[in-house]
């Protein structure tokens, strides 16, 4: 009898909290399962290798989970998470460049640094690696994910004019690159 009475009681605030947390976690798990492969594909072209791509997606998804109450209420939760992915990659590339910022001389040309040591597996990835993190994000979102300039601007938190300029500079760098020749752009350089 006593047991029946206990069951009839409303759940405590703590139990309700736990229920909400579990429900949110389940929702996030489902979200992650559906987006994982697409995020990984984008991250692969942003980073140039599988290991860094997985790290990057994990970082972005962990940030999304930490703020899941905000992400799930956003107008476009996908855009929110993609933006986190792009920002995490820009931060990652910035860390590679910190030693350059600390120098007291302005280099005449881009000197090889840690970011150049990312595994380069083919001509296309080598060409992308020569772009800045933002230029690379712009061309991957525009030409791999086929997003409009306005969508890219929203994802990057930039104005459309800024996206156009980054895009034009990226295309100028890539023009004439082996990776974009009529044939032979896909031959693997190394294993």
């Amino acid at each position: 009898m006593a047991v029946t009475g206990t069951r009839a009681l409303p759940p405590t605030a703590a139990a309700a909290d736990a229920e909400v947390r579990e429900s949110a976690e389940e929702e996030f798990r489902a979200f992650m399962a559906v987006r994982w492969t697409r995020l990984l594909r984008t991250a692969y072209f942003l980073t140039g290798n599988h290991h860094d791509a997985e790290d990057l997606v994990q970082t972005a998804l962990a940030k999304a989970f930490a703020r899941w109450h905000r992400v799930r209420q956003a107008d476009d939760p996908d855009a929110y998470v993609w933006r986190m992915l792009i920002n995490a990659n820009v931060d990652r590339m910035r860390r590679f460049r910190i030693p350059e910022w600390l120098t007291n001389r302005f280099p005449e040309r881009h000197a090889p640094d840690a970011s150049d040591q990312l595994a380069v597996r083919d001509a296309l990835l080598a060409a992308l690696a020569r772009l800045s993190a933002l230029q690379r994000a712009v061309v991957v979102l525009r030409y791999l994910e086929d997003r409009s300039e306005a969508e890219v601007a929203a994802l990057l938190g930039k104005r459309v004019g800024t996206v156009r300029t980054h895009n034009a500079r990226a295309l100028r760098r890539l023009r004439g690159d082996d990776a974009l020749r009529e044939s032979g752009g896909e031959e693997e350089r190394t294993g």
């Binding site: 072209f45 296309l124 890539l174």
Partner: peptide, 21 residues
């Protein structure tokens, strides 16, 4: 051309199917 190359390369990608939940 860049779009073609990116899509070609993406089709050949072998990605981890299971997320590290």
């Amino acid at each position: 051309r860049l779009g073609e190359r990116l899509h070609e390369r993406a089709r050949r990608l072998e990605l981890t199917a299971e997320p590290p939940v």
